[in-house]
Design a binder for these strands. Structure first.
Ligand code: SF4
Ligand code: SF4
Lengths: 135, 135
DNA sequence: CCTAAAACGGACTATTATTGTCGTATTTAA
DNA sequence: TTAAATACGACAATAATAGTCCGTTTTAGG
């Protein structure tokens, strides 16, 4: 519980790697996966998603790869997590990340409202750290 | 990812319920499970663990049950989570909650150190909210 | 003493989420 | 034309969580 998924970790590693180099430099998934010993297929998917979400742009074909689009300072951990995960991602309560009625006790639950405050604090923490601090 | 476990939620619900009443009042697991529609067996285990960790004290036998021992203001979310989960509980990185070498890329990983700062912020948030705010 | 209600605790199953893999299609520089 | 790359979809393997079952122990009260 409360652990960053590997997908997110791989995404953060890839982004921080790209943030090290010059703006506009092209990196391939293979290159990153070998450099950090990450499973290629999984990393590839993560980078594809980051591309789809506009964090990096992709170039197909032989000398293809990815380049960082946004400036590292503007890339918060929160935004990266949100991009990679499909659901409202660091929701600490099931009723926030899933349909509310998927929690069988939603109606009787007395803690969901007060916990929203905790959620807010966590959101803030995740929004305050950026990829810049990872390089 | 990043979701409180049901065990923790049930524990928080139980504690907040007990915090509502008078100090020293006895509550049974059955009573709580019926009041909030929680699966009895699972809740029972959670309360047993809370008893073992000294958050509540238990009385066996016919008119037995649990009473709240610590004052709600001193019961932080962090301490409750730690009591219920076995591992360092809201560790955001596998290498912190599991043996470090269980992460195959631990050695090459460049994000683990910077992420400790994030971890610290999250710890703080979890330590600042108490059961008192749930009643 | 007997009974019933409660905590205690171990083992197990079911369900779900995550992680990793595979196969194939598409694009494109050289 | 080829090879290197992204792009997708489907799948399998693994692990974590949730929930269940079954028994033991304790003890107040009749
Ligand atoms: S309703 Fe209460 S228990 Fe169900 S998910 Fe939301 S917070 Fe957790
Ligand atoms: S080493 Fe890096 S990747 Fe492995 S768990 Fe720790 S942080 Fe995550």
């Amino acid at each position: 519980m409360f652990q960053l998924s590997k997908r997110v970790e791989y995404g953060l590693i890839a982004l921080s790697h790209m943030a090290k180099g010059q703006l506009g430099q092209i990196y391939t998934a293979k290159e990153v996966s070998e450099r950090y010993n990450l499973p290629y297929d999984l990393l590839a998917k993560v980078m594809q998603k980051l591309a789809k979400r506009g964090f990096i742009s992709s170039y197909q074909g032989v000398r293809g790869g990815y380049t960082l689009v946004k400036h590292p300072v503007t890339l918060t951990i929160a935004s990266v997590v949100d991009a990679i995960e499909d659901r409202p991602s660091f929701a600490i309560m099931q009723c926030e990340s899933h349909p509310a009625d998927s929690c069988t006790i939603h109606k009787q639950c007395t803690i969901k409202d007060p916990l929203l405050k905790l959620q807010g604090s966590i959101n803030k923490v995740m929004e305050e750290m950026t990829i810049m601090e990872l390089v």
